[in-house]
């Protein structure tokens, strides 16, 4: 196996140009939204809005302005290029019933589009809401960390296109070192709110695409405490098992009791 590869997304240097979105769409030949017709979100300058089957990169605009302040002197923009987290323990991979979702030699998580039959179990399993159905293939799709490019030693399209190096590609160990150093630098500059999200194994075993954030995870649309769907496997299995035992006992007692009653009645008549 090659060394685990991933992304480090430093949100502090993202300028919201969406070059990564475009590069991703071009390389992976993803269709336009709504057949190319413009749709405006109406609540943000961000019109992509979410990750799904045709948006494998999404630059999220977080517009922190006080709408009561006409001069908008106190506001700030937070920009984050969001992507599949390529979780070390991946919820989508757990539940996939066709084996379409695999872990690659780069420790990334890839949906094989020719195997997927579009059951959508992975969509409800993903703690980050990354996966969606691609309306062209009718299968579940998401970022592959440009598996086809990695195979031939190229870097993923998004990080290649990123003009500010907000998206960095490399081995996980290298990226983690670099990210730690960056957090240290920011703290020294007085930006003490900077921290890393998913750079250790605390979040679902570690995120192979992790982030440097400046506010709470929820502000960026990231769950504070993402969980694996399999956490409910035993609790739900036990519940169903209890149900089966109880219903079985009720059936046994109810339908058998009658036979006993009849035996008793017969015995009574005979005696």
């Amino acid at each position: 196996m090659a060394e685990p590869m991933g992304f480090f997304t430093d949100t502090t240097v993202c300028i919201g140009c969406k070059a990564c979105e475009i590069a991703c769409k071009q390389w992976n030949q993803l269709p336009a939204t709504n057949g190319g017709q413009n749709t405006i979100s109406g609540v943000s300058y961000d019109n992509t809005r979410q990750l799904d089957g045709i948006h494998w990169r999404h630059v999220r605009f977080i517009e922190q302005f006080d709408t009561r302040d006409p001069n908008r002197t106190d506001g700030r923009w937070l920009l984050m290029s969001d992507v599949c987290k390529h979780c070390v323990q991946a919820g989508c991979l757990e539940v996939c019933p066709t084996g379409a979702i695999v872990r690659t030699e780069f420790d990334t998580v890839v949906i094989q589009s020719d195997v997927c039959n579009g059951c959508r179990a992975c969509i409800s399993a993903c703690p980050f809401g990354v996966i969606g159905i691609n309306p062209v293939s009718h299968t579940a799709q998401k970022c592959t960390l440009c598996y086809d490019r990695l195979k031939v030693g190229m870097e993923p399209a998004c990080s290649k296109a990123c003009p500010t190096d907000s998206i960095q590609f490399g081995t996980i160990s290298q990226l983690r070192d670099r990210a730690q150093k960056r957090v240290g630098d920011l703290h020294q500059q007085g930006q003490t709110e900077a921290y890393l999200y998913g750079a250790d194994d605390k979040i679902v075993g570690g995120l192979n695409s992790f982030f440097l954030l400046m506010d709470k995870p929820e502000v960026y649309g990231l769950p504070k405490d993402p969980q694996l769907p399999s956490r409910n496997l035993a609790p739900s299995g036990i519940g169903s098992g209890i149900g089966a035992v109880l219903v079985g006992l009720l059936g046994l007692l109810n339908f058998r009791k009658r036979r006993m009653d009849r035996f008793a009645a017969q015995g009574h008549r005979e005696s």
Binding site: G91, S230, N232, P235, G239, S240, I242
Partner: peptide, 21 residues
């Protein structure tokens, strides 16, 4: 219940998920 969706993944009481039952 073996998902991350609201209602389904949250119907837990005393460590048991009640949806199957």
């Amino acid at each position: 219940s073996v998902t991350n969706r609201p209602v389904w993944a949250n119907m837990n009481l005393f460590g048991i998920n009640l949806l199957g039952l």
